[in-house]
Design a protein around this nucleic acid. Structure first.
Lengths: 219, 219
DNA sequence: CAAAGCGCTGAACATCCGTTTAGTGTATTA
DNA sequence: TAATACACTAAACGGATGTTCAGCGCTTTG
């Protein structure tokens, strides 16, 4: 009874996003997608040309959703983690799960999106440093990149994370932001630092190319 | 079962691990594996029964490699990150790449391995806290879980990480441990803390269930 | 009214998949 | 020497896959 305002093409695309997110691209057949969208397999091809083209359309649509959510989060106030904003949007979950699946099989569109997220993170951390909310760093871009990758990595491994800490970060947290606490609380602690200065220096000697003699910084 | 176990069956298994690691399980056909191992497709089935059984054999073999590497790293001296040890072993790369691919498609064997890694991390961090190398925490198990997941997430997204910071952490670093510096240096900085106390409290108010007025906790 | 266009389908296509079968040659055993 | 066991393969099987195609009903247009 409830009329679906989406066009058939959009319904197919959304069905594909759900299927790809749930099982991966290679393991999802066009017939499965067609069944979920309640259309014939031929119509999927009719609208998108091929499975690969459909996949590209999904990539682009998910990227658009994420850019939009990201933009909203940025406009509505600062967040040290734009990624976290995704979990708080109701459009998020399908897009999040799709991203979590496709992040590994190397689409150029997704890579481009990741690069953007890193760039955003870099801008945010620079502001954070200026306003005294974040510590300065010798490697601003690398720090932004690694933080972004770790956040995305948590998304990708959300099933393990759910098993281990009891919260699935790809779910919808728009109604109750504090439900994500089981993940956020320890993550915040870690963000504040989990190794001591001594350890840092010790590890640096083992791994870092140009040994940093000394830097002094405290929170 | 000598250390020279390159029987035909082992060659097939190793070929499968490489293929699964490179393209994912679903996208890899038995014929592809057979071609890489220079045998007939039928022989793959002859030795392993089915594709699924072969996949399980791969899971178990990779888990065994990682457990072995992990054990060696533990025995030879403390490392705050057992995961990092993987990159420094020559057997690592194929196993690392396989893990990075299969971590997402939910095999029970892999999940079990992840749980073990978390348990190890927990043990390490507890020692770390006692010896003053790590900060104490209200959430020891969750912290260990999240750190492990982030480390694994970096592995899973190694291609993005390589593009962004210029180092592929699934490669072999046994000859030159410092080559991993581009990743380790900023990661170490982050481990020392990247947000200030003020930010921590601010974020905690927004996300953490039971607001911690102050932290200082040990049971 | 006829023609054309569009959303959509069922059936068929070639191809690839995992797996089976029937059999090879070779080494070991009785 | 004959029988057995095993590593291994070519060929084929049934089924699933992505895609094509002819044609349906319906609307829009001339």
């Amino acid at each position: 009874m409830r009329s679906d305002d989406r066009t058939t093409a959009a319904r197919i695309r959304d069905a594909a996003i759900e299927c790809f997110a749930a099982a991966g691209v290679a393991a999802t057949s066009i017939r499965t997608i067609a069944a979920r969208a309640d259309v014939s397999p031929a119509l999927v091809i009719h609208h998108y040309g091929s499975k690969e083209d459909l996949r590209v359309a999904c990539d682009e649509h998910v990227a658009a959703i994420i850019r939009e959510v990201k933009g909203k989060a940025m406009a509505s106030g600062a967040s040290f983690d734009p990624l976290a904003a995704l979990a708080r949007q109701s459009e998020g979950p399908p897009a999040n799960k799709y991203l979590a699946r496709t992040l590994v099989d190397g689409s150029p569109h997704v890579a481009e999106l990741v690069d953007e997220l890193v760039e955003d993170a870099l801008a945010y951390t620079e502001i954070g440093v200026q306003t005294g909310m974040m510590t300065p760093t010798r490697y601003p871009r690398e720090r932004a990149a690694i933080l972004t990758i770790w956040a995305l990595g948590g998304l990708v491994l959300h099933e393990h994370l759910a098993r281990l800490v009891g919260v699935d970060i790809t779910e919808d947290f728009s109604t109750d932001p504090k439900a994500i606490s089981r993940y956020m609380a320890p993550a915040l602690e870690i963000a504040g630092g989990y190794i001591t200065q001594t350890t840092k220096e010790l590890m640096a000697q083992a791994f870092v190319e140009d040994a940093p003699d000394e830097e002094k910084e405290q929170s």
